[in-house]
Amino acid sequence: MEKRVTFSSWTIGILFAVPQLLLIFTFFYWPAGQAVYWSLTLQQPWGGGNIWVGLDNFRSILSNADYWNSITASLVFAGISTGLAMFIALVLAALTDRQLAGSRFYRVVLIWPYGIAAPALAMAFRFILAPEAGFMAVVNQVWPGFWDPGLDGADAMASIIIAFSWKYVGYNFIFFLAAFQAIPRSLIEAAAMDGSGVMRRFRDIQFPLITPTIFFLLVINITESFQDSFGIVDIMTSGGPANATNLMVYKIYSDGFKGLDYSGAAAQSIILMLLIIVLTIFQFRFIERRVHYR
């Protein structure tokens, strides 16, 4: 009979998991639970006491036109900036992968934007897109009144989308390039010998083979566009003009910390969390079907 050391698989499993569980509990479940509790009460900001109000916070938020406007703005922002950031990154990565002249240089440089903190890049874009002083001032000289993010909500939305996409092009680029380089050269060479052109090879070979990466980036980009947009909005538009860029995450901050309405902000963050969960489930349920993990 072979002699072997055995462990109760249950206890040892738990033991290995405990540190991780503790971390998750402390930094996720506990604060999230606290947020749920706050969202069901009216908290006095200085901690003097609270009143149980049930679902009143949710009711008052969901019956507020400004909040629906904020949801719409967030979805528009998420949709356009994700599309833009992924499309540009895909094109750049495909070109870099083709070893065009200077591609080694691009490979390094294109990653940099992701390394810049959101507020810093927002500050830079604020200068670039300022209608009176920056690059857009030149455009405004030619077409007076063309660009006015101070009063035109669409222009302000465009500004934050540009800034956010610029940052995430760098992030997406890394993943796309890695995915392209993981495709065996022989496949592409064989296709080339069969006489298919660049576009054809991209459509029939490369694109299907990187769908897992595309799907991964789609989920990440949408999630981040709901969360990571805060610094950009705060520096560039502060949610204005007339709430045009008051994204959900920014509204949580301004209601909660500037307005000291902790309960309303907690309720909003629960709604935001649910929305992201729903969107992610939707993506896994319906879009992932088209992904081939080979």
Partner: peptide, 14 residues
């Protein structure tokens, strides 16, 4: 919460 009322002022003026 007058800070929020001021914010609302900015929004409506815009």
């Amino acid at each position: 919460n007058f800070t929020q009322i001021r914010a609302e002022f900015g929004t409506q003026m815009q």
